[in-house]
Simulated assay, not measured.
Amino acid sequence: MSRPPLIGISARIYFPAAPVADIGGVFTRTLHYLEQSVAHWILGGRALAVMIPAIESQGMLARSEMSLAEYASQLDGLVLQGGNDIAPESYGETPLRPEWSGDRVRDRYEIDLFDAFVSAGKPVVGICRGCQLINVALGGTLYQDIPSQRPSEVQHLHVQQYDRQFHDAEILPGSGLARLYPGVERTTINSIHHQAVKDLGRDLVVEARSVPDGLVEAIRWRGPSLVFGMQWHPEFMAQDRHHPSQLDGRPILEEFLAACLRRRG
């Protein structure tokens, strides 16, 4: 049998915040980490998961010393996991509030990573922040804060409920998602974000919108390789079913891994 798909996953980044004396130990250092549920989602498709480290200004290496093209060459596909806000500077804006300043270091790293995999023709999937990153990498913009910039009766973020916050979404007819979920016009997805796609990036199409406010929930690239972003977290819904109508993320994972194997072949 051929080896299973080898999937790279972008790192989340923890930066130590002062004061750190009361935490101590490893938390006084910059950490790169992979959320377990994302890794298990990938492993559940009989693929291997590899976290790709970032390069930041205080590290031992310069960004020029790390070849992300080598990762793109050796790995079969890329998953951009969730995390901190995208920095407004990454799409030509300034933060409307200090707490929305985002993570510019991670943005640069993930945009470089995205470009390397797309240039190599390797499939890319983005989850939550990853969906927004795909849009920004292709020249799109974001709402820095949904409640203030796009008021809606839909609550896209509930801090206390976290991954148990759900709302309805519409799968657009004729889309790639409609092909993966035949007969499903409306579904239920989790929602853990206060930013969202505003202006679409180059050659991107919308595949799902939230109901009833119409906010973008899924995007797909019209280029030669598979690039798909979803605003929800399929890895959380794979662990527990809180709604009978919630979307099963397996078809999305299967499409992604099948594209990875085709590209390898």
Score class of each variant (00 low, 15 high):
residue 97 R to V: 13
residue 163 D to A: 13
residue 69 A to N: 03
residue 181 Y to E: 11
residue 140 G to H: 05
residue 123 P to D: 04
residue 149 Q to I: 04
residue 87 A to V: 03
residue 69 A to T: 10
residue 70 E to H: 01
residue 78 L to K: 06
residue 77 G to D: 07
residue 103 D to S: 06
residue 71 Y to Q: 01
residue 114 F to H: 10
residue 94 T to M: 10
residue 166 F to G: 07
residue 179 R to C: 02
residue 167 H to K: 11
residue 139 G to Y: 11
residue 71 Y to N: 02
residue 134 I to A: 03
residue 126 G to S: 06
residue 161 Q to L: 14
residue 140 G to P: 12
residue 69 A to P: 01
residue 178 A to F: 07
residue 166 F to C: 06
residue 173 P to K: 11
residue 138 L to E: 01
residue 122 K to H: 07
residue 153 E to Y: 00
residue 172 L to M: 14
residue 157 L to T: 00
residue 157 L to V: 07
residue 175 S to Q: 03
residue 156 H to F: 13
residue 85 D to F: 00
residue 96 L to R: 13
residue 172 L to G: 07
residue 122 K to R: 14
residue 78 L to T: 02
residue 102 G to L: 00
residue 158 H to E: 06
residue 127 I to K: 13
residue 85 D to R: 00
residue 129 R to F: 04
residue 147 P to Y: 13
residue 155 Q to S: 15
residue 178 A to K: 07
residue 103 D to C: 15
residue 150 R to W: 15
residue 160 Q to A: 11
residue 120 A to E: 07
residue 126 G to L: 08
residue 135 N to T: 08
residue 139 G to N: 01
residue 138 L to I: 03
residue 72 A to E: 08
residue 144 Q to G: 11
residue 136 V to C: 07
residue 143 Y to Q: 09
residue 119 S to C: 07
residue 179 R to L: 10
residue 184 V to K: 03
residue 167 H to I: 09
residue 169 A to M: 09
residue 143 Y to N: 04
residue 122 K to F: 05
residue 102 G to H: 09
